[in-house]
Write a protein that binds this DNA or RNA. Structure first.
Lengths: 151, 151
DNA sequence: GCCAAAGTTCAGAAATTTCTGAAGTCTCCG
DNA sequence: CGGAGACTTCAGAAATTTCTGAACTTTGGC
């Protein structure tokens, strides 16, 4: 349980997050939020920790704020403090919703641009059916999560 | 419903797929599979259609085969024929499973590398809980899809 | 108000990903 | 077998993404 091990684990997590679609710096920053043993953290601390420029960390923080994974705290002292939001993981997953919607939209555009009865039309119909189903299920799934969590 | 419109819609879909994590060429290739008005298609046709080299199409096909989105058909004539798999969308979604597993694994590694009672340990515990929940729900969700589809 | 610390932005450098073209391999037909 | 067409692979070019460093802006204390 050495320091070294801990930050190795953090970097490994960052890698997984990157594959999951986050930008590299945002992923590494998020990992710092997870693994740092204080309640809140400042930008300078993150930059020092990652050995990165404050510029890139600023960008990463902005991205994470936009997605809603972290929040800026009512600033106590001089510098801004940030922390991971409680429901960060649910939020990250919810982001999938917009991807699903985009897929559904794309399928419908395709259906409209395709002659009925042809193979393309049928395939796009299948696609629409699946994403319509998914779009219906995801909210219920998150609701089940919140329910379970409340206990 | 002109040809032009149709392929515009295809390229737009490719863009969405790219944002969803597919490589650019694989995404464009998949779009061709969706929008082409024949049951099967050959590599040369795809390359010509996309105005891309057969080399890149070969790579894209390989990737799509690996993920399981398309299949090589028992070759009728000389060239290989491919087609989109019936359950392509479910397969694409199932791929999320491995991402979820990787996240869960990363969380558990982090928990092991972190001192119990500290904020980091707690945060990683939350993360593990969420992804454990998700990993439990996804199979059931897909099962519901297959059930609904059977009707 | 003025200063200093903290944060933001952005142009260009660096790193990474992606694509092509050409050489190599495989397969099937004659 | 030999040849031709189809496919694969891979080194290097092209395009894109990502990061840095420095100039600029904002904020809060004095």
């Amino acid at each position: 349980m050495s320091e070294q091990e801990r930050w190795q684990a953090a970097e490994r997590l960052a890698l997984v997050l990157t594959e999951g679609g986050l930008q590299r710096m945002a992923a590494r920053t998020l990992a710092v939020f997870l693994f740092t043993n204080t309640e809140t953290i400042t930008m300078g601390e993150i930059a020092e920790h990652l050995g990165a420029s404050v510029g890139s960390v600023s960008g990463a923080i902005k991205a994470l704020l936009t997605v809603g994974l972290i929040e800026r705290l009512p600033t106590p002292g001089r510098r801004e403090h940030y922390r991971l939001r409680d429901d960060a993981w649910a939020i990250l997953f919810t982001g999938q919703n917009t991807v699903v919607q985009a897929m559904l939209q794309a399928a419908e555009t395709g259906i409209a641009a395709t002659t009925p009865g042809g193979p393309a039309h049928r395939r796009l119909g299948d696609m629409r059916d699946f994403y319509t189903f998914l779009l219906g299920e995801l909210p219920a799934l998150l609701q089940r999560w919140h329910q379970q969590r409340a206990t």
